[in-house]
Computed example of a mutant assay.
Amino acid sequence: MQLELRHLQAVCEIAEAGSLGGAARRLGISQPALSAQLRRIERVTGGELFVRGRHGVEPTPLGQFVLAKARRVLHEMDALGADTRAMSTDDPLRLGCIMLVLLDGLLARTDLALSGREITVDLEDSVTALVRMLGAGRYDVIVYGEVNDHVVPLPGGVLARTLVPREPFCIRMSARHPLARHDDLELADLADEQWMTLVEDDDGGPEALIEACAKAGFVPSLRYRIIDRKMRHDLIAAGRAIALSQPTAPVVDGTVMRPLVGTPITGRIRLAWNRSSVSALQADVLYRAAAGSYLANIDNHPFHRAWWDAHPEVHPALD
């Protein structure tokens, strides 16, 4: 038997998963089948590649050597696929996104940057679904968010880059709300409000809101979960609800945006892509297009411009 790319992938998956069972699930095969495959690989390499340790299976010295070579080969094959695909404008670039504020300007910038290559775009309301479809090859690249310390696990074969490491979530409320005259808000002063829940419920947002409200001494009344943006804004303008919002969200008639004292809830924006279908050059083009789209919305609200200027450490890396 000669080693094939699938054998190298199996070795890498075992090392990354830390167990045969976990690797088998990732590869979509049974654990006995993977065990048998590993034994055949070990016969070719001339010795054991993994031993059972305190934290699952661990590579032997021979295993570490094979892993290093396997990762290099797989990386080169991924790069070859991405580079050749990047040279062809026949296949569309498939973009998945939930960051509606960012998306509004991203498409025009990407169209210009990619010299007319066709782009297909899907909007999702679940980060989990977005990431799963990226791993399955449904998308080539995704833009998504994480709230506070929540980290979205990414599948194998995916690379990611943080666009904005931290932005302060704020409150959108009716312009007629008694608290609208304040420059900023104490979270505790919103204890009696009806809240619009976040559309994305698996990015850490709901947990972050509930935890922050608990520290402020109350449990939020999460009454509405509405995807349609116009309907959300109409309810808020009518004074029937308030909502967490990104600070780059657009100005909406009848509503105002106010920052929270102490920034108890923050967001993070990331770009992730399949390294087998997106080249390093394309990933950089997409990153810069997304950064330009975000920066174009900094001045939507004066308080965010002031916060942004005071925190240069969170600015996108464009050098």
Results as ranks from 00 to 15, higher is better:
Leu185Asp: 01
Leu100His: 12
Val101Phe: 11
Leu34Asn: 07
Phe169His: 14
Glu193Thr: 01
Leu102Tyr: 05
Thr60Tyr: 07
Gly205Met: 10
Asp309Gln: 14
Asp140Gly: 12
His315Thr: 03
Thr162Pro: 06
Glu313Asp: 12
Gly292Val: 12
Pro264Ala: 06
Gly204His: 10
Pro165His: 09
Met231Pro: 01
Asp203Gly: 14
Arg240Pro: 00
Asp125Arg: 11
Leu102Ile: 01
Glu313Ser: 05
Ala70Lys: 05
Leu27Tyr: 00
Gly157Phe: 08
Ala238His: 07
Cys213Gly: 00
Val51Asp: 04
Leu222Gln: 11
Ala249Val: 02
Arg258Lys: 14
Gly267Leu: 07
Glu48Pro: 09
Glu124Gln: 13
Asp228Ile: 05
Val44Cys: 01
Leu103Glu: 13
Arg305Lys: 14
Gln64Phe: 06
Gly239Tyr: 15
Val57Gly: 03
Val252Tyr: 06
Glu186Thr: 02
Arg39Tyr: 08
Glu313Arg: 03
Glu4Trp: 00
Arg94Phe: 09
Ala79Pro: 02
Ala129Gln: 10
Leu222Pro: 09
Leu62Val: 10
Leu198Glu: 10
Met99Lys: 02
Asn148Tyr: 06
Gln64Met: 12
His233Asp: 15
Val44Lys: 04
Gln282Lys: 12
Ala296Trp: 08
Trp308Pro: 02
Thr263Phe: 09
Gly205Ala: 14
Arg85Cys: 01
Arg26Tyr: 03
Tyr287Gly: 10
Pro165Gln: 09
Phe218Lys: 02
Thr110Phe: 15
Leu134Asn: 08
Gly63Ser: 02
Ala68Arg: 15
Asp309Thr: 13
Arg40Cys: 07
Leu281Thr: 13
Gly47Pro: 05
Ala68Lys: 14
Leu198Ile: 03
Asp202Gln: 05
Val147Arg: 11
Ser35Gln: 09
Gly56Cys: 08
Ala10Met: 10
Gly135Glu: 08
Leu271Trp: 03
Leu130Ser: 02
Asp203Trp: 01
Leu74Pro: 00
Glu118Pro: 13
Lys230Ile: 13
Ala86Ile: 00
Cys97His: 08
Glu16Trp: 13
Val51Cys: 04
Leu318Gln: 05
Leu154Trp: 10
Gln246Glu: 07
Ala310Gln: 11
Ala212Gln: 01
Ile242Val: 14
Gly56Glu: 05
Asp253Glu: 13
Pro153His: 03
Phe50Tyr: 13
Lys215Met: 01
Val66His: 08
Asp284Met: 14
Asp228Ser: 10
Glu167Tyr: 15
